[in-house]
């Protein structure tokens, strides 16, 4: 029961934060909305029993990738324009209504997850870390290696793009 309630609350938070991103004009605020969406998605994974993937989602997505976006924001802050939605919604009250519940809901959910007595972390469907690692490193070993190659190519490509821009 409480898990269902948490699921709906987290889903509503994710949807509201994407909506807030739609109404935002400031890229920094949009990045914060994106962070909330990714973080609540990680919490949903944890709620479903995928605890490891939930942790990875929070660490990689809402941690590392968000840091990358923040670095890009600082690097690109000198370029105009700050931003712009094609549809210009000038309804500040609606915007406040959309953004205000986000931190509140997040704090509520975190409190319930950490201190709620009825919350059982291990659901019947929990995927154990052993099953996951066996699936990745034994059954899908080739795909995993191909993925490492992809990451290597991505690093080289990012370096090449940055170097060329420096030369101009």
């Amino acid at each position: 029961m409480i898990k269902d309630l948490l699921f709906y609350l987290l889903s509503a938070t994710a949807i509201v934060s994407v909506l807030a991103m739609f109404f935002q004009k400031d890229p920094v605020k949009a990045a914060i909305s994106m962070f909330v969406t990714l973080f609540t998605t990680g919490l949903i994974y944890m709620l479903l029993g995928l605890r490891f993937l939930g942790a990875i989602q929070i660490i990689i997505y809402s941690g590392a990738i968000m840091v990358l976006f923040v670095v890009a924001l600082t690097a690109l802050s000198s370029f105009p324009p700050a931003l712009s939605s094609k549809m210009d919604f000038k309804i500040p009250a609606l915007k406040n209504l959309l953004t205000a519940p986000v931190p509140l809901a997040l704090a509520l959910v975190l409190t319930a997850l950490l201190f709620g007595p009825d919350v059982q972390w291990r659901s019947p469907f929990a995927v154990s870390l052993g099953d996951l690692t066996r699936s990745i490193f034994i059954k899908h070993a080739f795909q995993f290696e191909a993925l490492s190659l992809l990451l290597f190519i991505a690093v080289v490509a990012a370096y090449v793009f940055a170097r060329r821009t420096n030369e101009r």
């Binding site: 995928l50 993937l53 990358l68 795909q143 992809l150 793009f161």
Partner: peptide, 30 residues
């Protein structure tokens, strides 16, 4: 656990996409 394994790999794809995307963005902006 099969789709979960694929999900784990998609995280790496997302990281690569963000890295290359931001590098291209930086180049375009400059």
């Amino acid at each position: 656990a099969e789709p979960a394994a694929w999900l784990f790999m998609l995280f790496a794809v997302a990281a690569a996409e963000a890295g290359i995307g931001l590098a291209i963005l930086l180049m375009l902006a400059r």
